[in-house]
């Protein structure tokens, strides 16, 4: 029947697939090719947009396991865990990759201990060990001070999560098509104990901080909450989201969903701009895997400059407004 031994877990939002669903196949494709197997995505939800399924094929997927039912609209770990375990037991994949989102980081450990299978969180690199075909999973630990490579020699599937935005989707290849396995819904999958009773939006989009290309973050150096408006303006101009250090959040200048670091979120954007953040190791742990780091700080000895690709030693209240007016003015000098 199916020969796809590498799976990725797509995530849905209403009828649509979330962008991370297209990033994971880029990881999976490389592994499947090395193993000489096909790549499948698991899509669980309700009335999922067919165009989005086609998009998965265009982004490198060969097969889709589609499990849809009104009771599966919206993630509840108990239900999704039952579905995924049933699929694993039937189709026996070798490797499963999910996003290190609140969904992936809840579903994967729930499934892993039930099987049991090995699971490695927040992998930055995935590869296949040539001699054995085992998955090699590399991840940072101890606040990013070490990089550990982990494998799962005897248990299957080998499970891993990777951070959103850490992988670019493969270029869209519209000549590709694939096979959709429509999985018959089993009412026993619905646990029924936990109910989603509401949703409260966040006033700002801080929760999207892990899902953006640009993070403009501020710390103690901003001196007061109102000054975050500078960062908001910059974030708007650069198409990003505002982040913050723990100091700024603890002072009540900005809400917790914006916090980057060990007790907040880990982000991997293309650009991380740190303004008035000294760079305590707990903060660095949350952002040092960003592709490009720019730091603005008045203290030349601030540790943030050690991890910065571009540093400006100076008063942020001079530097940022000048930078903003340049961005606004286009060519103006």
């Amino acid at each position: 029947m199916s020969s796809a031994k590498v799976w990725t877990i797509a995530e849905t939002s209403g009828r649509r697939l979330k962008p991370v669903s297209y990033e994971l196949p880029a990881r999976g494709r490389m592994l499947a090719d090395k193993l000489g197997t096909r790549l499948a995505s698991v899509v669980i939800g309700d009335q999922v947009d067919r165009n989005d399924l086609q998009e998965l094929f265009w982004r490198g997927v060969d097969e889709i396991y589609l499990v849809t039912h009104p009771e599966l609209a919206g993630f509840l770990v108990e239900n999704y865990s039952n579905v995924l375990i049933a699929l694993i037991k039937t189709y026996r994949p070798e490797i499963i990759i999910a996003a290190a989102t609140t969904t992936g980081r809840t579903l994967m450990p729930h499934v892993a201990v039930r099987l049991p299978a090995g699971l490695t969180a927040d992998c930055t690199e995935l590869d296949i060990e040539e001699e054995t075909g085992n998955l090699l999973q590399t991840r940072p630990a101890i606040g990013g001070n070490i990089l550990a490579t982990i494998k799962t020699p005897h248990h299957r599937p080998q499970m891993a999560t990777v951070r959103p935005k850490s992988t670019k989707p493969l270029p869209r290849d519209e000549s590709r098509s694939g096979l959709i396995h429509i999985v018959k819904f089993n009412p026993n999958w619905i646990d029924g104990r936990v109910k989603k009773v509401g949703m409260r939006q966040i006033e700002e989009t801080g929760a999207g901080i892990q899902d953006t290309d640009v993070v403009i973050a501020g710390g103690k150096g901003l001196k007061k909450g109102e000054n975050f408006s500078l960062l908001r303006e910059l974030a708007m101009l650069l198409g990003g989201v505002v982040g913050a250090s723990r100091e700024a959040v603890d002072r009540g200048w900005i809400s917790y969903p914006h916090q980057v670091g060990l007790s907040g979120k880990t982000v991997t954007p293309k650009l991380y701009l740190a303004a008035g953040i000294s760079g305590a190791i707990q903060h660095l742990a949350g952002m040092k895997t960003a592709e490009v780091i720019v730091a603005v700080n008045s203290d030349p000895e601030a540790p943030i400059f050690k991890v910065a690709d571009f540093g400006i030693v100076g008063d942020l209240f001079t530097v940022l407004p000048a930078f903003i007016s340049r961005l606004k003015g286009g060519k103006a000098k």
């Binding site: 070490i146 490579t149 400059f305 100076g314």
Partner: peptide, 27 residues
């Protein structure tokens, strides 16, 4: 199920360019 097979110590230092802003010109 999992085994740590290798530990590395990544260099966190990026040899970034540093500019100092002290006046209009350096800004």
């Amino acid at each position: 199920p999992t085994r740590v097979v290798k530990i590395e110590h990544p260099k966190v230092l990026r040899q970034g360019k540093i500019c100092r802003v002290t006046d209009e010109e350096t800004l």
